[in-house]
């Protein structure tokens, strides 16, 4: 499987993402934000960082980069797109995911491991994630507080589009386990078609035991399994 990892000015997790998917035996290439083609990508990762210095709003300027038109077309055709951290903010600004990420409730930048409950395991981003326990991934953000109006939240719940929620080590969704004030403890969501997803925590930074944990692998493995299933059904 071939991943296209986008690169904006001030992306800083692009290489982490490339490394993470290569370590799983996939191929990856970096795609500069001024490019208008994603090449032969089977999936797209919009990585973390501080694209355009977070000027105006996080992700607000990156969404107008030429490559984002290619990402939109790719997503419209059903291609898998994953946004991590700043990538999640960009996908929300671009309207590819609903809602917005605002300043953390306590105004602090949070750089720490969190536990996540996978709320829907029947998606291309979550199917290989262990069911029996919460996963542990690092966060590193100042604007990760998920906000959407009530109608949008209801739609997300009804459509099972909430994929990950902040929880404690036992899997309980508590206020104390919510690092940034996100509504419904939301850490990550998907679009209605479940081919575009975004999350604030970093699976790319937790993909090998040497990094302190490898729970992040299961997310990329989910994408690879979903892609393999699709490829097999197309061939049949």
């Amino acid at each position: 499987m071939h991943f296209a990892v986008l690169q904006f000015p001030a992306s800083n997790c692009d290489q982490d993402c490339v490394h993470a998917v290569r370590a799983l035996g996939h191929t990856a290439s970096l795609v500069w934000h001024k490019d208008t083609s994603l090449g032969a990508a089977d999936a797209v990762i919009v990585p973390g960082g501080f694209s355009y210095g977070d000027y105006l709003r996080c992700g607000a300027i990156a969404r107008f980069s030429p490559v984002m038109q290619a990402v939109r077309t790719f997503a419209d055709q059903g291609g898998l797109v994953l946004g991590i951290c700043n990538g999640f903010q960009i996908l929300c600004e671009a309207g590819l995911l609903p809602g917005a990420l605002v300043r953390n409730r306590d105004l602090q930048f949070h750089c720490e491991p969190v536990f996540l409950r996978t709320a829907n395991r029947e998606t291309p981003f979550t199917a290989s994630i262990p069911a029996e326990r919460p996963i542990r991934l690092p966060i590193a953000h100042g604007e990760g507080c998920y906000f959407a109006d009530e109608a949008t939240l209801s739609r997300l719940q009804a459509g099972r589009q909430i994929l990950w929620q902040y929880c404690d080590a036992a899997g309980a969704l508590t206020e104390a386990a919510n690092p940034n004030g996100s509504l419904l403890n939301i850490a990550g969501i998907a679009n209605e078609r479940f081919n575009v997803a975004g999350l604030m925590p970093h699976p790319d930074r937790a993909s090998e035991a040497i990094l302190g944990g490898d729970d992040g692998r299961s997310l990329f493995e989910s994408m690879a399994a979903a892609f393999a299933t699709r490829a097999a059904s197309r061939a049949a």
């Binding site: 605002v102 300043r103 953390n104 409730r105 306590d106 105004l107 906000f147």
Partner: peptide, 13 residues
């Protein structure tokens, strides 16, 4: 300005 429904921790501080 932030919408009234949105948490505004900066304003509150």
């Amino acid at each position: 300005t932030p919408k009234k429904a949105v948490l505004d921790p900066q304003g509150k501080t």
